[in-house]
Structure formats: C-alpha cells, structure tokens
Design a protein around this nucleic acid. Structure first.
Lengths: 335, 335
DNA sequence: CTCCGGCTCGAAAACGATTTCGGACCGGTG
DNA sequence: CACCGGTCCGAAATCGTTTTCGAGCCGGAG
C-alpha cells in the first residue's frame, strides 16, 4: 500500500501522515497517535526505498572485516560482529559487511561501500597509527567509530582496550615470578595496539631498572605461524628468554609449538602469556594465561557511540579505553 | 552528477545512456562502448538509491546467523560468512547480516529483513526438517539458498554435507578398531543434519549385525556443555560405551571433559570422534579426530547457486551434497 | 473585533534513476 | 519507389516517499 492509498483510506492528507510518522512538531500528539494506530491496523509502513531516495540515506552502517591473511582471529571478529548486530537491533539500521582483500585495498573497499552502495556510517577495527581509512572518511565527512585509537586526523569515537596496561601487567607478573629475560613477540607496530603494548612492556621493565633488550623484541603476523617464527628468531640470541609475552593467543600457541619442538616445556621451562582470550587458549595444554578482550561488548558499545556521534555528540565525549583483566592459567608457570 | 547532466555533457539522450548502461539490445555495441568510456572518464555512475526505487530491488542479499545460545560454532559461521562475501564480490550485491535472537523469533527476523529492509534474497544455514523459514520464503517467492537440506516445501538450491556418510564412516572406523558399544551424542534432530547423522550411524551398526541400543543415543545442544551433559547421561547406562561419536567438535570436547573428570583417558580408555573440524580440535589433548566441513567453500558455492537460481536455473540442478573427509588424529585411539 | 499561534489541509516539487512510446533516420532489399 | 530492421532521439510516466508552501480554521488573548 502506498502512502496515498493509506491517506485516502483514513481520510487524511499525505503530508500530515508523513509528518506524523517522522516526528514533526506541527502535528498534535492526538493526530500522531491516530495515524500510528491506523498504520498498524491497516498494516501500512512506508516503503524504505522511496524514503531512502528522498532522504539520501540508506539506513545502513558498514562493517569491514580485516583481511584474513593478516592474521584473522576468528572469535575476535565474530564476537565483535555479534555485538554490533546486537547494538543495532531496534535502531532501524541494518548492517552491511564486507571483507577487505588485502591491507592495500582496504581503502578501496571503503570507497566501494561508501560511494556505490551507500552506507550512512562505518565501523572498523585494527586501527593503525597512520590510518588512510580514517583520513578518507573524515575527508568525506562520513561518520564512523572504531575499535582502537589512532594518531590520524581529528578526534573520533572509539572503544579501545588499554594494551599498554596489558603489556605492563604482563611484565610485572613475570618479573614477580623471578624472570629477568622477558621477551615480547609483538604484533606489527603499524597497528596502534601493538605500539601501546610495546610501550607498556618497556615501561614496566625500566621501572624495575631493566633496560629493554632489542634481542628480546620481535614483530610478527598475528597468526600461529607468526608466533612460531618469532620464537625461532628469539632463540638465536646469545641468551634466550625465560619468559615470552605475546601479541595474541594465536601467536602464543605458535610460540609454545616452537618451544615444544625445541624440547622445552611451556609453563615450566619457559613462561608464556598471550592476549585477547581466544577460546583456544582454554583448551591448550598447558592452558594459556592471557588478557581479556570483551569484543562482543565492545561491538555493542561502539554502535552506541557511533549513533550518538551521528546525533551530534562531540567525539571527544565518545572515547573509551577499557582495562583488560589478566586471566591466569597455567602457561606462565605453576600457581 | 545526475544522469541528465551526464547526458547533456556527452550530448546524448538520457534514454540511450540508461539503456547502454543496462544492457538493452536496441543500442549498438559502438554507442554502448562510447557511453561506458564517457562514464568512466567523467566519473558518472548511476545513483543506486534512484535505481533501486525504480527497479524495486535492493541489490542486497541477507544472511542470518543462528542464535548463539543454540550452540554457536564460531569458526563455522565466520568461515561461511567469509565464503559468502567472497562469492558476492564483483556481483554488485552486498551482504546484509543479522542474527536471530532465538529459534522462535527466527521467522520474524526474516520478515524484518525481507519486508522492511528489502533484501532481494536470503541465505541461511542449519535447516530443519520442518523449517518455517523455508515455508515463509517460498510463500513470498523470495529467492534463497541454504546450507543444508530440508523436507519442507518445493525444491530449492542448497549445498549440504553428507552427514549420513560421516555417521557411517565414523561407526565403521570405530568398529574396525574393535569397539562394539558405540554411542552417538547427537545434535538435536530438528536439524536435518542430525537426522542424517543418526541414519548413517544406525545403518552402519546394522550392517554389522548390531542393533542400535537406545541407551547409547542421546541428543544435546551443540555446545561443550551439551556434550558434557550427554556423556553424563550415557555413563548412567548399565554398560557404558567404549566409543563415542559426537555431533560437533565442541560437543566432543565436552564429552572428553566429562571423561577426564570420571577418571577415563579419552583416546585410550574411550574413543571419541567429533565433527566439522573446528580449529580447537587440533589443539586439544588428545587431538580430536573429526570430519571436515568446508564451510568457507560452501559459502562461496551457495552464492553461486543462489545467483543462478535468480537467473532462472531450475532449483533441481542447484543442489549439491559434499562428502566429508575423516581427519584422523589421536582421540579415537592410537594409530 | 483583530491578531496570533497551533494545527490541518492539498497541491506540487523534489529525490535520481528506468522504461515506454512515438517518431525519425538510414542503408539495404524486394 | 515502398518497405523494413536496426538505431537513435526526446518527452513523459513511473517508482514511493518527504518536504515545502500557501491557505484556511479555530479558540483565546489583547
């Protein structure tokens, strides 16, 4: 049913109906209620395609999954996806997702979504220190919110996890257990969160009067193989580490694999700590000590921040940094 | 730029341009090429909102994730999602996803997407024997394709995994290893794939002259707790199983957990086989023997089938059943 | 009585495409 | 010459809203 027919049926002008439905001020509460009731009764609801054309909006927000080959932590993204979807329910927006093929084509993916398919706003994660996606969106004045901070451009809404704190706490815990040669198998530092982790790691060492040893620091892909390769590099050092902090649980598993292959027992001979609480860590033997990352709740929250920003709340007030919790298990030594 | 301005600029009528862009027959190859070149040169591309209104299509297909609490196998869905997205690239369609809150509200989720948000077609998984989603979509004549068969309605395109074969092969393998009391901790049989698994399981037993024992068959949620609870029920039997086939790797892990808690060693005292090759299985100790499930490739294929169906290919020709491969590891006994 | 604010009405102009339709041109065929 | 198929042209209708605008009504305040 078109709005004209509906108007005829309830004997009201089209304009009043449209205004009632769209919350205009110059229609009395009474008429509005009447229209809403009639609409429900007759099953009228405005055709979204028509309204979208008129309003130049698409009622959709886009979410871009990072390219798989750059280290794709399954539960991480799926939980975030679910959180976003949950945050979106009852808002009238729907969720369009797509995956970037590669790091290079990431901005193109954004352009495709923004320019051709018409989403009203974007959400993404894995922000980088210098992030072309942010530059692009701000230039085009497309609203967005992210998981993670960046040094690019003007303030924007985000939720982030305090990875500096994670790095610091990880080091402190290992120091308290008597370790002195603590390595960091980090994720690549073009990601902001890797930078913060490194900062926290080095700061905590210095606090105890230990100078960070370049031989104990490597960067690798956020994958199991990345972790495995990272530890291989570390073991070439003159004096190898007795404890390893990792950029992600998957990397930690790779580290432990290499450890085992070299005849060492993770959790006994060498302490290992991961990050982001991938479910795999619980099942691994020894169970992986790690840091929490509530990506599902983060997804929900990011949606709220984004919507607030689209309604005019200044971005400065829409930035949250959450403190991760250590989840002690067995891989960093006997309790 | 609107089409009118573009038309003026290249000195051609609007109608010819539109026809050229939409592949009509009554425009020569020459003019079409000319229009396309000019469009690229001047950066014109038709506003999707306008064309969608006119064509009453939304250039989008919807994918519904099953509700988490019904047993949400993370990598399973994320891989499928990635496959779908990969299948969709270059087709001009985009992907709208949403999650159903509960089994009951599943059809409502579909209605919301189909009636309000306007997707042109749907993809979903976890088909059930009697599936209201299928009934609804066929009644409304909305194209769709699924992961999994169903007994509902008329033929439709799908990719499915031959879970009957998995059940059969699992039993055969366990029989070959000398087991006689083989249990099945199955997923709920309102899912089609659970039915097929059960059929294969029972058929293989009968082939060897063993009557399926009702005490060795339970159904549980597709979660770790479901598996754990299933084995608890089985252990109450007078003569408990020496081997357990499971509906999913997560369930198998629950089974093994209960086994360990009862002082039995999975893989030595009791053989366990899972299903669907969840990455967790690789890391578990003992590593989980399971069956492959190429959900990523399935997602890609389902998109192809769906698009073919939308272009008129009869559904009968768009149905594929893939045979799963056994992935032998340690949990079903020493090699 | 006049004026004004709050509300309603109806018509009409966007929004940006696709599609139809009648007319015209042009080269070739009968 | 008449006719035809293949192209191209232009104008106009259509998709279903939202939004604007001028006009009108009514009750209460001044």
């Amino acid at each position: 049913m078109k709005i004209e027919e509906f108007a005829r049926r309830i004997g009201m002008p089209v304009s009043t109906i449209s205004k009632a439905l769209n919350g205009y001020a110059d229609v009395s509460a009474e008429t509005r209620a009447h229209v809403l009731r009639a609409a429900r009764r007759l099953g009228y609801s405005p055709n979204p395609l028509g309204r979208r054309l008129r309003q130049k909006s698409s009622d959709a927000i886009g979410f871009v999954l990072s390219p798989p080959q750059t280290g794709f932590a399954h539960p991480f993204f799926l939980n975030m996806l679910m959180g976003i979807d949950e945050g979106l329910v009852e808002t009238g927006y729907h969720l369009i997702i797509t995956t970037a093929r590669s790091l290079e084509s990431e901005v193109d993916t954004f352009k495709r979504l923004v320019e051709k398919q018409h989403v009203d706003a974007m959400i993404f994660s894995r922000t980088r220190r210098n992030d072309p996606r942010i530059a692009y969106l701000q230039k085009r004045r497309i609203p967005f919110a992210t998981f993670g901070r960046s040094e690019t451009g003007k303030p924007f809404p985000f939720v982030d996890i305090d990875y500096a704190a994670a790095g610091r706490e990880g080091v402190r815990r290992l120091l308290a257990r008597g370790h002195r040669r603590i390595a960091l198998v980090n994720s690549p530092t073009h990601y902001m969160f890797s930078c913060y982790r490194r900062q926290g790691y080095e700061a905590a060492l210095r606090d105890c009067g230990i100078a960070p040893d370049p031989d104990l620091y490597v960067e690798e892909d956020i994958t199991e193989d990345g972790g495995a390769h990272g530890l291989q590099r570390l073991m070439r050092a003159a004096s190898p580490p007795t404890a390893v902090l990792c950029g992600h649980d998957l990397m930690a598993i790779g580290v432990m694999r290499t450890l085992v292959a070299a005849g060492k027992r993770p959790g006994q001979d060498v302490a290992v700590i991961g990050s982001d609480d991938d479910p795999i860590g619980r099942y691994f033997n020894p169970a992986l000590t790690t840091f929490s990352a509530e990506t599902r709740r983060a997804g929900q929250r990011i949606v709220q921040l984004l919507l607030a920003a689209m309604q005019g709340t200044p971005a400065k007030a829409l930035q949250e940094v959450w403190t991760p919790q250590l989840i002690p298990r067995a891989s960093d030594g006997p309790a």
